[in-house]
Computed example of a mutant assay.
Amino acid sequence: METTRIKDLLEPPESANNLWYQQRGRHFERILNDMLSKEEMAPRTSMRPSGEEIDGSFSIDHSFYLLEAKWHAKTIPASALYSFKGKVDGKLIGTIGVFFSMSDYSTDAVDALLSGKELNLILFGRQDLLLIESGEITMRDAIYVKLRYAADYGQPFYPLEVYFSNEKQTNHNIQTQNKPWSILVESEADARIIDTLFKRFHTNTNFDVFPAGGQLAVAQLAEHLVKTYAANIGVFITPISDPDVQQKVINKLEDLGLDLVVLNCDLESWLGKYVSVEVYNAMMMLSDYNGKMARRYARSADLDKLISDNPSFSELLTKIGAQSKA
């Protein structure tokens, strides 16, 4: 299979087997190498210092970066980030690790990095890489944006789509009361779920759904948007294992004056309660690859009951001018 574009590799053919997926991963690594080479970042690939496998490295001016590139069927777990961080920790002080994932990241993976004493990784997800490939932003500028956010907020993940959406608003001098809404959720999978749900409504206000990268990252991203763009923001919050930590997150978001939808379960379980028994049983026969089940629930949930049972969700819909298409 010959290709030089990430977008050409997004949809596996019906005949795809293990070899096809292995080749896709190698193509992805070569595409990244080409991106870095075109911007004169002196990439080196497949290094094995002292038996340790590293996907590669590159440089910007006099700063040096290690890279990891993954494209798996499932989201990247915390263990993969810990493993990569260990490799970066053992290198020259000041070396930064850059993890490129076309599989995105599990919610706990990004949060897990925040428990360490030193943050020396930044993370790129699928949408980030597609924006770079399409020419919306250079790799150099993308790294700068992510490093600046990591330095300001101590967060390894900053979705470039947030940067683009709000920079466009600022450039057009849109007044605060007329600004589109930013809807924040925890993960890329959650963003797809909420986007699917909101497509069932007519709205008279533009909005975008953005992933923060993790449960503990939501408050920092919200603070950044408020301080930098004075944005209108709604936030979906699902349970955090430590109730005290969750309350601190909620308190911070409330102090920022945001509109919160606080749930007592994850999004799939929340929406699943509003799907009929017949539809639910029919769906159980289908695959649940990459969060498909939750998105099916979002397309089939009883909107009237969903709205009546969840006042905070109903209030958010009212503020963005949303009405059911049904």
Rank of each mutant, 00 (worst) to 15 (best):
W71G: 09
P77L: 14
M102R: 13
F99Q: 09
L66K: 12
M102V: 07
G90T: 01
A73M: 08
G94Q: 07
S79H: 09
G90F: 01
T95R: 11
T95Q: 12
I93K: 14
Y65N: 15
K74H: 09
F100M: 09
L67C: 08
G94E: 07
G97V: 11
V98C: 15
Y105K: 12
H62W: 02
G90Q: 12
S63Y: 01
K70Q: 08
D111F: 06
S59G: 09
D61H: 10
K74Y: 05
I96M: 15
S79C: 01
L92F: 00
W71S: 13
S106K: 11
I60L: 12
F99H: 07
K91S: 12
F99G: 10
I60R: 14
G86W: 04
V110Y: 07
F99V: 12
K85M: 11
S103F: 05
A109N: 00
V110N: 01
I93H: 08
F58K: 10
I76Q: 11
L92Q: 11
T95C: 12
A78Q: 13
P77K: 10
Y65H: 07
S106L: 07
K74F: 02
E68I: 03
T107Q: 09
Y82W: 10
S101I: 03
Y82I: 06
W71H: 11
I60N: 15
S63C: 05
F64E: 10
S101K: 07
A73C: 03
A73H: 07
Y82G: 03
T75D: 10
A73L: 06
G94N: 11
T107N: 08
Y82C: 02
G94F: 00
F84G: 10
Y105C: 06
I76G: 06
V88K: 05
I96T: 07
D111T: 04
S79T: 11
K70A: 07
I76E: 04
D111A: 13
I60Y: 03
Y82V: 02
K85W: 10
D111M: 10
Y65L: 03
S59L: 04
F84S: 14
L67F: 02
A109L: 07
V88Y: 05
S63L: 02
D104S: 04
S59F: 02
S63F: 01
H72T: 01
T107S: 12
K87T: 09
I96K: 14
K91V: 02
T75H: 13
W71T: 06
I60M: 15
F64V: 04
M102I: 14
K74M: 08
V98L: 13
K87Q: 14
Y82L: 14
G86C: 11
L92S: 04
F64D: 10
Y82E: 15
K85D: 15
I96Q: 13
F64G: 06
K85T: 06
L81V: 02
G90N: 13
W71I: 06
S63V: 00
L67P: 01
Y65R: 01
S79W: 01
L92V: 00
G90S: 14
D104A: 10
F84T: 11
Y105Q: 03
G97C: 08
A80H: 05
A69C: 06
D104V: 05
E68M: 03
V110I: 14
K85L: 14
F99I: 12
D61T: 00
E68N: 12
I96L: 13
T75N: 15
L67S: 14
A109I: 06
I60P: 00
S63I: 01
S83H: 04
S79K: 15
H72V: 02
Y82N: 14
S103Q: 05
A80D: 04
V98Q: 11
S59Q: 13
A78N: 10
